[in-house]
Design a protein around this nucleic acid. Structure first.
Length: 259
DNA sequence: AATAGTCGGGCCCTTGAACT
DNA sequence: AGTTCAAGGGCCCGACTATT
């Protein structure tokens, strides 16, 4: 499995946290990227942003992250944005951003968490650069990137991690690793989303999205047990065999509950 | 001066229509 | 059917600005 190719799309925008929240406000079901761009421009909520920049934000960042799969991410986050803690929302944004930009997911899985687990306190842009160069050597990009692109994408990886709360914010080429742990709302969302996408219980536990939170199969199982205490689902584990009783049949129902 | 992030141009690939 | 052309969008990268 080669995995999706790595691109430079992060150059169009990093976490875009406040912009994404504004766009979620403006977006309504059925709205495509083009229409959303119009609405955003006319809304006056992006007064300092040029049309070209808005294209970057909406078409190259928001749409690939949140308007995929029938715009389900946008619909769900719009509902959750007002009612769950900001940090929880960031975690879901991280998941969707990593799906849209596999290079970010790769970096978090292959560099961030091993570092975290290894007791390091910092990650530098040079660490990211080594990751990018190795990815290019491994053929993960469609072609070799120029030196400047390699350097900048490296900075975008760490910068994006900072936007989402995995690394310390601020302008710096070496960032401190922050304590990071999946939130119950995000875990519940992810578990149900994977289940309702048709994955079997074991596939849900082993899914790569959990690795964005540094979680392997056992960690996921532990988290789901905690969720079962809140009544979101039922976990029956006997030896190696795990069965999960799912209480809700749609994401809409789940989002209502975790709101 | 160095670094991070924003902005916008342009190449190139894909898609679909128009034309042999 | 096969080829050519135009349009659109994804992707890359240089220029620019802001911050330290």
């Amino acid at each position: 499995m080669a995995g999706a190719p790595y691109t430079t799309q992060l150059q169009a925008g990093l976490g875009l946290v406040s912009e994404t929240k504004a766009l979620l406000d403006l977006w309504t079901p059925g709205m495509g990227a083009g229409r959303l761009q119009e609405v955003a421009r006319e809304s006056g909520r992006f007064p300092t942003v040029t049309a070209r920049r808005l294209r970057n934000i909406v078409a190259e960042c928001f749409a690939p992250r949140y308007l995929v799969g029938g715009a389900a991410p946008a619909a769900h986050l719009k509902k959750l944005a007002a009612s769950i803690p900001a940090a929880d929302l960031l975690q879901l944004m991280l998941v969707f951003t990593c799906r849209a930009n596999p290079i970010l997911g790769g970096f978090i899985r292959e560099v961030y968490w091993p570092r975290y687990a290894g007791g390091y306190t910092e990650i530098s842009n040079d660490d990211a650069k080594m990751f990018v160069e190795r990815a290019i050597d491994d053929g993960r990009t469609s072609k070799r990137w120029s030196e400047t692109t390699v350097r900048r994408v490296s900075g975008y990886l760490t910068g994006c991690c900072a936007d989402y709360g995995l690394l310390e914010k601020g302008l710096r080429s070496t960032r401190r690793i922050l304590p990071y742990r999946v939130a119950p709302t995000a875990a519940g969302y992810l578990a149900y989303e994977l289940h309702l996408a048709g994955l079997g219980d074991n596939a849900v536990l082993a899914h790569e999205d959990w690795q964005l939170f540094g979680m392997g199969r056992e960690d996921v199982l532990d988290e789901l047990k905690r969720l079962s205490l809140k009544g979101l689902l039922i976990v029956q584990a006997a030896g190696d065999v795990v069965r999960i009783g799912w209480k809700y049949q749609t994401m809409e129902a789940l989002c209502d509950v975790i709101s």
